[in-house]
Design a protein around this nucleic acid. Structure first.
Lengths: 344, 344
DNA sequence: TTGTACGCGTTATCAG
DNA sequence: CTGATAACGCGTACAA
């Protein structure tokens, strides 16, 4: 009879383990394990008995032990730049929904657009030995990249396909999207175009859209687009602020491309209030096709991307890799659509 | 020399463990463990040496092993009804930010307003032995409650304080908030008031707001408020739909209380479009004080709650419990404010 | 179909 | 201040 203070005593005593279930059911722990994991190698009868005991004892498997023994984790990490954008929320929702069926949980890392925070977050997330890591964008510090590559975890980068992924990527071309917007604005006859977005180092995707815009502007033989940089993440009031800054720096501006509908929608509202006629006097184009885009007056011309499809695609791509399926490509380019409405 | 196919071979071979670090550093694994966990019981010299090796070998601790051995998990689960509401996103962001400092990760469970999904999610999340579970609202199935209570995990319910928590709660009184709105609308002289929200069983918090509204309406001696129920989660177009349904069922309605700004804002925009004068002809009140509330015309009268403060408070409350701090109360009631603007 | 032996990578415990 | 040893709860491999 062991009397030494076993470690178990000091733990939350009441924890029911697989062995407890096994004893009560008169089977081996292994059989319980089989029942829990739905192995077909168990008689219907014993399965029922074991499940009964599981229920009575309220046994809940310990995932840490499972992970340790099986070297897999049922966790996927998603790292995003902000939680205050409906686009990223929608992406996460799709990822969660897609992975839930496989009983995989999602851990969220929130960088707030900071590369430093991204490093710390990735490092910390890797300790959970996730089955995959879903990042935002293609721009990451060398440290993050090497960390991820060393670890061998499948990595999926989202929201951008204008570059080479660490491993896999699902997104769209921000460059092309920006170019499309530029073409439209030029075709409308805009002469002085401005762009409002986050700092270029902070949000490289917005930067790509800006570059696309510039290309179109240049092709049209127009002067360079004014670029107004705001602090990320952007809020609705930044729409008004961006509008102010543009008009202040370049009063003759006749078209503004906002890097997100978050800003474009308030900008339209503000124009209405000030009596600035949209689009006649000032054309406005957003990005993201948020819900309200079609409901404001004039309705917002914007670029529709599909965050939910992107999330689903990312999750599927990851599952495919985990299932060892053959990959046709490591990069999925989703289409975006220029949704032409009233504001431009 | 062991030659049997050890299990290690079949694993992702390159994994560096604490023992590897120990060998390379010429110390015991225990010392490495102490260094990793910042134990003060290590000479500065050996600490440096070990850290050097950790860096060179790119050692990343295995959290599953840590959890198993220490019976703690550095994970907190947050269960919300939808990810498409900025309110819940804001709450989550605060929770993540507050917990990040303690290197605690957050796992998100998304119920989509389904109690069934909530059960499955809670069950599954408990397998991770989270340090705490943060739920939305006070309404949960008996199964969920007993599951949680049995497990012994600290539970924090948010967004509602009109009832008894399983364990702890942080929120505000939806009942009072609804009552405040009702008082305001009545004071404005509204005679026929309507409420637009989700199905009552799905969203008990909105239901409480409705009940508060009803009380005020009754006190004013007005006829019962019309209640229009929509499918959760609500989107912007539901604002227009809600408006339509109300006017269709009760054309003489002169005030609408929407259970969320998500709907109230599009409703205002739609009224503008249709030439319905707000608030003269139809007063509109929202809930949540979303960013755009102050930017539409007329600006939206609404109730401000503070999802971010709620998230922070919930996280802190949890940390306090984990630190064994004494609790003054198991329920924190945050204030809400009726923000009176142009629409009501 | 079921059971046994062992190891997964780490921390707790206690001896030095 | 450091190390040896024994768990932690489960899955893998193989035997029965």
């Amino acid at each position: 009879m062991k009397t030494s203070k076993s470690r178990k005593d000091s733990r939350s005593a009441g924890t029911v383990t697989m062995n407890d279930v096994a004893e009560h059911a008169g089977v081996s722990a292994q059989t319980v394990s089989r029942v829990v994991s739905n192995s077909p190698l168990v008689t219907e009868k014993t399965r029922r008995r074991v499940q009964e005991v599981i229920k009575n004892l309220r046994y809940i498997p310990n995932d840490a032990a499972r992970s340790l023994a099986s070297a897999t984790s049922r966790v996927v990490a998603v790292v995003i730049p902000t939680l205050s954008s409906s686009a990223f929320s929608a992406e996460i929702k799709s990822v969660i929904d897609t992975l839930e069926a496989q009983r995989i949980s999602v851990i969220i890392g929130n960088t707030e657009y900071s590369q430093e925070r991204e490093e710390a977050i990735v490092q910390s997330l890797l300790e959970r030995r996730p089955m995959g890591v879903i990042l935002t964008g293609l721009q990451h510090s060398a440290h993050v990249r090497s960390l991820l590559q060393q670890s061998g975890v499948p990595v999926i980068e989202t929201w951008d396909t204008d570059g080479d992924p660490i491993d896999m990527a699902v997104g769209f071309s921000n460059l092309t999207a920006g170019y499309d917007v530029g073409k439209l604005l030029c075709a409308r006859g805009a002469k002085r175009i401005a762009f409002v977005g986050g700092a270029r180092e902070q949000d490289s995707r917005a930067q790509s859209r800006y570059l696309g815009l510039c290309r179109a502007v240049e092709e049209a033989g127009l002067p360079d687009a004014l670029r107004v940089e705001l602090q990320m993440p952007m809020s609705a009031s930044d729409g008004v602020k961006g509008l102010d800054l543009v008009l202040q720096q370049e009063p003759m501006t006749d078209a503004i491309f906002f890097s997100a509908d978050t800003m474009a929608i308030p900008a339209i509202l503000e124009c209405n209030r000030r009596g600035i006629r949209v689009p006649e006097q000032l054309a406005i184009c957003g990005f993201g096709d948020y819900e309200l885009a079609g409901l404001v007056t004039p309705s917002l011309t914007t670029v529709r991307t599909k965050p939910d499809e992107m999330g689903t695609a990312a999750a599927r791509m990851l599952l495919a890799r985990l299932n060892g399926e053959e990959e046709t490509s490591n990069k999925i380019v989703l289409t975006h659509q220029l949704v032409r409405r009233g504001s431009a």
